[in-house]
Write a protein that binds this DNA or RNA. Structure first.
Lengths: 299, 299
DNA sequence: ATGAAAGCGCTAACAG
DNA sequence: CTGTTAGCGCTTTCAT
């Protein structure tokens, strides 16, 4: 009939029926702690771009750093029969049964950034140790010898790894690690409250390596306000490369976190595993090489 | 049977089958120009939070400011039978047939931020005019009389509306609008290339209202580097309130864009319409009231 | 070769 | 009141 033909002209198969039949949804579930965060939104962007190219879709769920919500989200995504899960666990997650169960029931998972060693699967992380080593080495190579490290709590993995990278760089150059040059200080507010302490150390240091950009920028501002010139007197390096690093004056030398690449890589790994189903072995942890972006806060 | 019972214990209905049967997916499709942008990621966050509470899910598609990709995304989301669409159109979109067709075929759409007057449906926008008026009025009320406006191109809606808000505030206070005090300058790079021009004007101005935060911050830096004190000599107000505004020194007084609220509101409107199907009338355009955040770049 | 039927997992409608 | 069935839209299988 004419009408039937007319319908066929812009006929669009129902993806729902298709999925129900084929047991494949071409949809990946994403569980992410916070969307409003430059790093995480970069990750989503990378995921979406690659997924789009491969004919997949992304279902985004925000755990808001809440364990319970993470569990509910996982369940909802499984109910929707997503082909796989992309997960960065919330800070409050100590129990991983919801994710272990998902894997046991046949839904592959790729962890990114916030990984768990309790679940054996593919993982993607950034090499914090190496990033910190590069940052510190760069300070040394541009003339610094006495480098203050503003660190995250050492019981956190990123705090520990970045601290150790800092130490390694110093040792590589036969510089002694001095305890008084390592300060637990990882927020802008921290810098302001420790201002006096930092300024007391300032005359004898020639470099600062901060565990993140906002801390680095706050330190720069405190130092500048008290007559120290950046980078002439003191070089400063951050970690993270949000857009802040290009806004500060001087612009901040920092370690890029490559969220976009991490997102792409996570999806690549997941799709790859979906293409080879049934294979339970060969899980890999991919470590993304950090990259130092040299700007004007170092010589 | 025992086995049947055991299955029931952690039985989870297949949402796919359910959707196919009920013709409802409890899923909303989101088409957004860029994910990596503080405003847009705030919007997504707000959408996700409300959707989560209402039992809906969000399928995120990034158009990357690309018309073709926007069309493909729309089609894909319709294929997946999303219950409704949340759309902020790409900068390159001039033809709206893909969205008109979606509406005609019964999929409701809510536009947010980047709306089109070619498609009649619910819309949510921020009151740029009012925001600019508030920003300028605040400068006047803190003592400014000669206010430089760094504007976006006036052929863009946000450029036009913010410029007109600026003018209105001046007129409200019987201050003449001077052409030479309106500069087309809406990026950090712009500020740097127009540096001389801005500095030539600087001695006679006592306020700056910039069309966005990064422009405001760049202007502050240029002024400070040349001996002008902020806010003592010149008060500065931005627009947008990304996190940059709290990083700059001094912290920046700016108009909040309320992305999170906009996201929530868009989902609320869409779900509301889904709850009352068939009603083709009563489309509303909701204007979100802007909010001035006073920080240290104004007195 | 083309066409009918079964079944993916579910629920609303109907029959017993 | 419980149990069976039809059908959501599709593809794969099987029969013609």
């Amino acid at each position: 009939m004419v009408k039937t033909f007319a319908q066929k002209v812009n006929y669009r198969p129902n993806a729902l029926a298709l999925s129900l039949r084929s047991q494949k949804t071409k949809t990946l579930g994403l569980i992410i702690p916070e969307i409003v965060h430059h790093f995480f939104s970069s990750v989503i962007s990378g995921m979406e771009d690659l997924a789009y190219g491969e004919g997949y879709h992304i279902m985004v769920c925000q755990s808001a750093e809440n364990f319970h919500r993470e569990v509910i989200n996982t369940q909802a995504l499984l109910d929707l029969r997503v082909d796989g899960l992309l997960v960065s666990v919330s800070k409050t997650t100590k129990n991983f049964d919801h994710l272990k169960n998902a894997m046991q029931d046949g839904t592959p998972i790729v962890f990114f950034d916030r990984v768990s060693d309790q679940v054996e699967t593919d993982k993607i992380v950034i090499d914090d140790f190496e990033g910190a080593r590069m940052a510190t080495t760069h300070l040394i190579e541009t003339g610094a010898q006495k480098i203050l490290h503003l660190s995250a709590p050492l019981h956190l993995l990123i705090g520990k790894n970045r601290y150790e990278g800092y130490c390694m760089a110093l040792r590589d150059h036969n510089i002694e690690v001095e305890e008084k040059l390592v300060l637990k200080c990882d927020t802008r507010e921290n810098v302001l409250s420790l201002q006096k302490h930092i300024l007391a150390l300032a005359p004898e240091i020639d470099g600062v390596f901060a565990v993140n950009d906002s801390t680095a920028i706050a330190a720069m501002q405190v130092l500048q306000a008290n007559g120290f010139q950046i980078p002439k007197d003191i070089g400063v390096v951050g970690f993270g490369d949000g857009p802040n690093a290009t806004i500060s004056s001087p612009t901040l030398t920092t370690v890029e976190q490559k969220g976009y690449e991490m997102g792409r890589e996570a999806v690549r790994l997941l799709i790859q595993r979906l293409a080879n189903p049934g294979v339970k072995i060969g899980y890999q942890t991919k470590v993304i090489a950090p990259f130092l972006i040299k700007r004007n806060s170092t010589k």
